[in-house]
C-alpha cells in the first residue's frame, strides 16, 4: 500500500506539472482588431470613447460633478494647469477593449498633450499629440513608443470630438474618435542570403 501511495505522489506531481504546462494560467479575452487598409499605406483602426459614460476619471479640481463621485483631486502646485483623464476605450463595434489616458499640461509655456492606449490582450501605445489643433478642430499626434503588438509599429493618430446629433433621452453627449494609422518599421530579412548585386 505504501508503494501505491508513492506511485500516486509521483503521478500527482506529473499530473500537476502537465496541467500547468498545457493549460494557460492567464487567458485574456480578445476582440478581433477591426482595421482597414489606408490608401497611402498602413492600416487604420478607429477607436471611440463615449462621453460621459466611458470616463473613469477627470483630473482638474472644481468640476461641477466630480468623476468619479467622491474624487478628491489634490490641490497642489505641481498639478496646476494639468487636465488628466482616464477612459474606457471601445472598438468600432462599440465594445470596450481597453483603457486610455489623456493628459494635457503646460510646461514652460509649452503645451503637452499625450495619449496612452492600453489593450490588455495586445499591448500599449504612447502618442504625443501636436499642441495646436488642425483646421476643423481635430488634432494629430505621432506614436512615440509602444509595447508588444505596438512595439514595432510607427504611425500617427488623429483625435476629434464628434457631438451626438440625436436628441434621445439618456444619449451620450458625443464621443471622442481616435483614428490610429499603423505603419510597420522595416525589419531586417530573416535569411542570411547574400544581398543582390
Amino acid at each position: 500500500m505504501i508503494k501505491t501511495f508513492f506511485v500516486g505522489v509521483l503521478l500527482g506531481i506529473a499530473a500537476a506539472a502537465g496541467a500547468l504546462y498545457a493549460l494557460p494560467v492567464v487567458d485574456q479575452a480578445r476582440e478581433v482588431s477591426i482595421t482597414t487598409v489606408a490608401p497611402n499605406g498602413g492600416n487604420v483602426e478607429v477607436f471611440r470613447i463615449n462621453i460621459p459614460t466611458d470616463r473613469v476619471m477627470i483630473g482638474p479640481p472644481g468640476q461641477a460633478t466630480p468623476v468619479p463621485p467622491g474624487l478628491e483631486w489634490p490641490d497642489i502646485e505641481v498639478l496646476a494647469g494639468m487636465r488628466t483623464e482616464m477612459f474606457k476605450i471601445r472598438n468600432a463595434h462599440d465594445v470596450v477593449i481597453g483603457i486610455a489616458i489623456r493628459n494635457a499640461a503646460t510646461n514652460e509655456n509649452q503645451d503637452v498633450i499625450d495619449w496612452v492606449l492600453h489593450f490588455p490582450a495586445r499591448g500599449s501605445v504612447f502618442v504625443n499629440m501636436d499642441a495646436e489643433p488642425q483646421e476643423g478642430g481635430y488634432r494629430i499626434g505621432r506614436f512615440r513608443a509602444g509595447s508588444r503588438e505596438f512595439a514595432t509599429l510607427n504611425g500617427a493618430m488623429v483625435e476629434r470630438w464628434v457631438a451626438n446629433t440625436f436628441n434621445e433621452e439618456g444619449a451620450s453627449a458625443g464621443h471622442i474618435e481616435l483614428m490610429a494609422t499603423y505603419v510597420s518599421e522595416p525589419q531586417p530579412p530573416a535569411t542570411t542570403e547574400e544581398p543582390a548585386q
Binding site: T4, G8, V9, G12, I13, A14, A15, A16
Partner: peptide
C-alpha cells in the same frame, strides 16, 4: 479499496508537493 484510497491520497499529496 485501500489501494484506491492510497493512490488518491498520493495523487493529492503529489499535487500539494508540486504546488509547494
Amino acid at each position: 479499496m485501500k489501494y484506491i484510497v492510497a493512490l488518491a491520497l498520493g495523487l493529492i499529496s503529489g499535487a500539494v508537493v508540486f504546488a509547494a
